[in-house]
Design a protein around this nucleic acid. Structure first.
Lengths: 315, 315
DNA sequence: GCTTATTACGTAACTTGCTACATAAATTAT
DNA sequence: ATAATTTATGTAGCAAGTTACGTAATAAGC
């Protein structure tokens, strides 16, 4: 352990645990080699599971029990079959399943390896007692703690992550398109009319007196919406999108709130929007901020998906 | 943690530590991603070391401090230079050295990442306290214990590893050659006369009334030697070789002992050997078992390397 | 009975390290 | 001053895993 890593404390724990893990595997390999046993530390989880099972076991079962991914178990099994330690047979009830078991050669290998494992256990437990506390217990407790309260979540709670609504900036042009295309492709499809707005937002929206807003969280753009100016103080709230991973966190509400406030400060005469009845969450949000469903399509709507027509009414 | 791994106890510790390590890196990545910071957990050791150093640092220095191999640091540095976070300059005093430092972009990255690291520390230390014992301390003690008393050595002590001397068997023919070539190439070189013995040991040694012995440890052949029958009860002790990794463990002594005993049981009239004065360890061994240096070359010796001539004399 | 979803396994490509080897500069020995 | 050794770095290739995706067999829904 170098001074630097130690000084980094908990931040270098990941690296240190990996180094320890590698070290343990190497220790095992040294013993196997010393006694000429054709075994490797990394084989242990898989081969010992197979050897302990009374019946042949399937690839996915091994993967679940050992915590490895199933492709890894699959390839490792192939390797050990090639080496002659394992054999496989198709399951009679389920032709997909490949049931693995030890060959005679595999059993012989286990017999050779068993004394190593036994002595390893003895040495390891002695070592663990020597080190003053039960390391294995400590690991177990730590595993549980991490599972229960993932550090990422705890850190996120501590991080300053107020959503901030900011005005359009050319460097966010791509985000405007990305956030809209994300939900469009999910619920409907991107129409040619849409694409034009994404390609030329400055010309099509801003130059006509409209506005584009972004929701910024830390350093990411996680939401957007726009006010289109139809002329004569009539505005449309449109192109609202919130990144999937940040939904349900009030980002949409802040965008609508800000847009309405902006509309008011611009002394607009009318603010409407068009949406679809399937987007109930959005409709609830709009209602909450003063939009009222007009009960019919907007006359002459350009979007196929625009079925609900809402207008902001003074409370 | 699956039941199987838990049940394996200390034998699955390697796998569990690796999983934990991966988990921690992932936790970090989740936070970085959540806050749109273009950083990865795996970068931490290298980039934080560079950022903490007042002067630019070299690749090997980073490797030493972080515990990574230098090629890994080298490639990782290249990657981060490509991404614009690091810059390098040749050291003026030592043209081989590549001195790494943060670019402006890199400094900006650190500034972004710092709050994450700070909060990570807070969370992690709280978590560690929650888990009932100081996990970091436990890891540190464990690292020291492993370093001080490597499990492989302790296990080897416990393993039954009596050296056993066995007779020639065709399946060990390759070992006979391997063990001899190993030391021949180290001290001298393999002569044509030697090669013939390795290719046809049965014909050249056994069929003439000679013997070949092997030292077997667990399942490995770690040493060999032969008795050549010169005719009329005259034998030569030759072709002795012990695998480098098993020297100094009395393997040679057992081989000589066994050979002498065999010579006596065959009622041989004379046992001699030829060697080189540079091989003092071997000469001491022969003396200990009753061989006496004759002080001159054996008349008509076939080997260039045979300079010392020893004969077994009754004590 | 037919379609659809799920499950078991495999393949490919990528990531994170490593070891082994090559090379050039610097240092030490002769 | 030259030769031999050491040091700093780079390159190639390998090992241990992963994720992402494809395919075939089974199970479930209408």
């Amino acid at each position: 352990m170098t001074d630097f890593l130690r000084a980094q404390g908990v931040l270098s724990l990941g690296s240190r645990l990996r180094a320890l893990s590698d070290q343990l595997f190497k220790e095992g390999d040294l013993v196997y080699k010393r006694h000429g046993i054709p075994m490797h530390g990394r084989w242990f989880p898989v081969i010992s599971l197979v050897s302990l099972s009374e019946k042949p076991v399937s690839v996915t079962y091994i993967a679940q029990q050992t915590g490895f991914s199933h492709p890894y178990v699959s390839t490792q099994a192939h390797k050990m079959i090639k080496l002659g330690y394992l054999q496989d047979e198709r399951c009679s009830q389920d032709e997909r399943r490949r049931l693995l078991s030890l060959t005679t050669k595999g059993k012989a290998l286990i017999e050779q390896a068993k004394p190593v494992w036994d002595n390893f256990k003895k040495v390891a437990y002695a070592s663990v007692e020597n080190s003053g506390s039960d390391f294995l217990d400590a690991v177990e407790r730590f595993e549980k703690e991490i599972e229960l309260r993932p550090w990422s979540q705890e850190v996120n709670k501590l991080m300053h992550d107020e959503v901030e609504i900011i005005d359009y900036d050319p460097k966010y042009k791509k985000d405007f398109a990305r956030l809209n295309i994300e939900w469009l492709e999910k619920y409907f499809s991107v129409e040619a009319v849409d694409q034009e707005y994404f390609d030329f937002p400055e010309k099509k929206i801003l130059q006509k007196g409209g506005r584009i807003f972004f929701a910024k969280l830390s350093n990411q753009i996680v939401g957007t919406c726009a006010l289109f100016h139809e002329g004569d103080g009539v505005y449309e709230l449109a192109k609202m999108g919130v990144s999937q991973s940040y939904q349900g966190k009030g980002v949409g509400a802040k965008l609508v709130e800000h847009s309405v406030a902006c509309f008011k400060s611009m002394q607009g005469s009318e603010l409407f929007l068009e949406t679809h009845s399937s987007l109930q969450t959005a409709i609830r949000l709009y209602k909450k901020h003063g939009f009222v469903d007009q009960g019919h399509r907007k006359p002459g709507s350009v979007y196929a998906r625009s079925e609900v027509y809402m207008v902001l009414e003074a409370k």
